[in-house]
Amino acid sequence: MVPIAYYLILAAVLFSIGIGSFLIKRNIITIFMSIELMLNAVNLTFVAFAHQWKLIHGQIFVFFVMVVAAAEAAVGLAIIIAIFRTRQTLNVDNINLMKN
């Protein structure tokens, strides 16, 4: 019997690592992947609470989150491809046309 709190802590750790890599990484695709990591951590939290409250709605929300994540991944990657075509770089520090 595992306390629900442990699942939540796991989700928190994953989420924090996601934030960390979001801030540290320079490759834009990697940053995107860290966003997906964060979303997964949130999904885990929802499922844990759905299990605790015996409500199925938590899992349905996860379902929707997955749908949105998929759509977002598609569109985001399309944007990245478009940027790569013009800037020829995936380094986020170089995508700085708006600087100053």
Partner: peptide, 17 residues
């Protein structure tokens, strides 16, 4: 805050959150 640098935006976002 408006530096045009994406990473700094990301940083501020995290700080806000």
């Amino acid at each position: 805050m408006q530096s045009g640098n994406i990473r700094s935006y990301a940083g501020w976002l995290a700080v806000g959150a």
